[in-house]
Design a binder for these strands. Structure first.
Length: 550
RNA sequence: GCGCUCGUAGCUCAGUGGAUAGAGCAGAGGACUUCUAAUCCUAAGGUCGCAGGUUCGAAUCCUGCCGGGCGCGCCA
């Protein structure tokens, strides 16, 4: 019996009790969950459904709980139900019913944890979106790790997902980049407002290698612009690929201009009645929908604003069939939320459903407890490559994905390279490697788990705890996807690793010395394989490897 | 000034209105002739920033205040 099965049984029992009494069953939610109480006296699972429902139907919660308990106790697999406190339902499962979960997990294999929780949703996920004026810095890398994990999560629960990287290769940032390259190629100092750092010299030299005539050409700056961007972007894409991140689409802002999408968006907004002209410029009345000031779409000099391109890009995503547009931005851009939400409403969309903007706090890096001060100008930026070189892809992805994006994080580079329990990624990976090792030993001994096992044998306290943790995985995946919070998967895996290590410590799996394999050996091999499956599936959702050996 | 966001153990952080608020690290004590000790066990550590409010029940929701971070261009 899985937690989902139990929750469904509790809901059924509650509905039956309400019906029996002629009470309104429409107050019941479509689905409920069960909790896993920390205190073992509170049973294997607990439900608060009686507390939630009692008031709405005018019943006494404790008495209602008692009636539900009476029905629930007759359900196959339920061993006992107690009513506690104001009306908690504390459920104990039959050990065999709990143990059968091992089979469910093993047979589902790579599918275990996947569901149809968000089936039918079409979601566009935009993240990183750094312009190709330099290597990816640490903030962008956080989004690469979190965004990619979120994409994997959303797909795992049945959503249609398109991941995108938006960039532009025109405009003043790129201009400064081109000027900096040109100066470096001529051996001149970095221009005012230019980009410093060693990578500029590297790229300038690479351009010269490719186009030896660049400096004597009619328009050297244009050559450095075009070739420099191409080289820089290749480097970014290569870094992302090594980081395990692939985008479905790299979207160039220029395409919006070339295809007349800005005019089309403006026309659409005008139709909707939210556009006006004033002071020679064209404005979007975002204040109609809560923004603190109206925004210019086309400047008085006839040029489009960046915001106008944002509008066109949003509309383009929607017209490509994405019902939900999710954009991940750094905290320094949170001021855009108001205008973006209002823009969505100006198109006639529901900004709550159609547009989600996720704001991620910044990342500080520490080395030996001291903050690494970063400056793009001085070229002392910590790049994706620096990070991977310092701590490796697995640790980097895990470290950046294990925290809520709401909290600014301090990453201690020394900690994440340590091969010890300080380091959560090793703690989780070690659990997987330990299982892999155990399974290799089993194969060597010629012990196999067989086609079937007696689930009632998995009745040790630590086996029960492990089974319960394994049972939670699908719900964790679904909630992490729905809440757009991949860090929940990492935290869950850490708990699962604790449950596994405790089980391993308390329960011998393989026979020792001359002992023969027993039914318990086989049952435990099913459990161990189930645990291996969940570690592998969970780590895969984070884009972190599940090593066979460490 | 206005807006957003955060404030939980010495440190780094979990905690989608539920029971006695958790984990790791640091510090104290214990378990290795190992199915990988990169592990496990025990004890200790808290006015959940402060004050009100809603609720049977608040770290969680609402209001105000205090403190930190960030943002408030016809820049990109």
């Amino acid at each position: 019996m899985t937690p989902a099965d139990l929750a469904a049984a509790i809901l059924d029992s509650t509905r039956a009790v309400l019906t029996e009494r002629g009470l309104d069953t429409s107050v019941l939610p479509h689905s409920i969950g069960v909790e896993r109480p920390r205190n073992p006296e509170h049973g294997d699972y607990a439900s608060t459904v009686a507390l939630q429902v009692a008031k709405k139907v005018g019943a006494n919660p404790r008495e209602l709980a008692t009636a539900i308990a009476g029905r629930l106790e007759t359900v196959d697999g339920v061993k006992a139900v107690e009513v506690a406190g104001p009306g908690f339902l504390n459920v104990r499962l039959d050990p065999a019913a709990a143990g059968r979960l091992a089979r469910v997990v093993v047979e589902a294999g790579r599918e275990y944890g996947r569901s149809a929780a968000l089936a039918g949703e079409s979601i566009n996920l935009e993240f990183v979106s750094a312009n190709p004026t330099g290597p990816l810095h640490i903030g962008g890398v956080r989004w690469a790790a979190v965004g990619d994990a979120l994409g994997r999560l959303l797909r795992a629960v049945g959503a249609q997902v398109g991941t995108e990287y938006y960039f532009n290769d025109a405009g003043s940032q790129i201009d400064r980049f081109a000027n900096s390259l040109l100066a470096a190629a001529k051996g001149e100092p970095t221009p005012e407002d230019g980009y410093g750092g060693g990578y500029i010299t590297d790229i300038a030299n690479a351009v010269l290698a490719k186009r030896p005539d660049a400096l004597s050409a009619p328009d050297p700056k244009e050559i450095f612009r075009v070739e420099g961007i191409a080289l820089m972007f290749d480097e970014i894409k290569e870094s992302l690929a090594q980081f395990g991140v692939h985008f479905d689409r790299y979207f160039n802002e220029k395409d919006l201009h070339d295809q007349g999408k800005l005019d089309a968006a403006l026309a659409r907004l005008r139709e909707q009645g939210h556009v006006y002209d004033a002071e020679g410029a064209t404005w979007l009345r975002t204040t109609d929908f809560g923004d603190d000031k109206d925004r210019v779409l086309r400047k008085s000099n006839g040029e489009w604003t960046y915001f106008a391109a944002d509008c066109a890009y949003y509309l383009d995503k929607r017209e490509r069939g994405f019902e939900r547009v999710v954009i991940m931005l750094g905290a320094d851009h949170h001021g855009y939320i108001g205008r973006m939400k209002a823009m969505s409403a100006c198109f006639g969309d529901d900004p709550k459903r159609n547009l989600e903007i996720l704001i991620g706090q910044l990342v500080n890096l520490l080395r030996e407890g001291q903050p690494l001060r970063m400056s793009k100008r001085a070229g002392t930026v910590v790049t994706i490559e620096d990070l991977v070189e310092a701590i490796g892809v697995d640790a980097a992805r895990y470290a950046l994905a294990r925290f809520s994006v709401d909290s600014p994080i301090d990453l201690d580079l020394d900690l994440w390279t340590r091969r010890s329990n300080d380091n959560p990624v090793f703690y989780v990976q070690y659990a997987h490697a330990r299982i892999a090792s155990l399974l290799r030993n089993a194969a060597e001994l010629g012990v196999t788990r067989g086609d079937d096992f007696d689930p009632g044998l998995l009745s040790h306290e630590k086996e029960n705890d492990l089974l319960k943790a394994l049972g939670e995985f699908p719900e964790i995946v679904a909630s992490a996807a729905e809440l757009r919070e991949p860090h929940r998967v990492a935290r869950y895996l850490e708990e699962l690793a604790t449950a596994y290590h405790r089980f391993y410590d308390a329960c011998r799996v393989l026979p020792q010395g001359d002992e023969e394999a027993t039914d318990l050996t086989r049952a435990r091999l099913w459990l161990v394989e189930a645990a291996r499956t969940v570690f592998a599936n969970g780590l895969d959702l984070l884009g972190v490897s599940a090593p066979e050996r460490m």
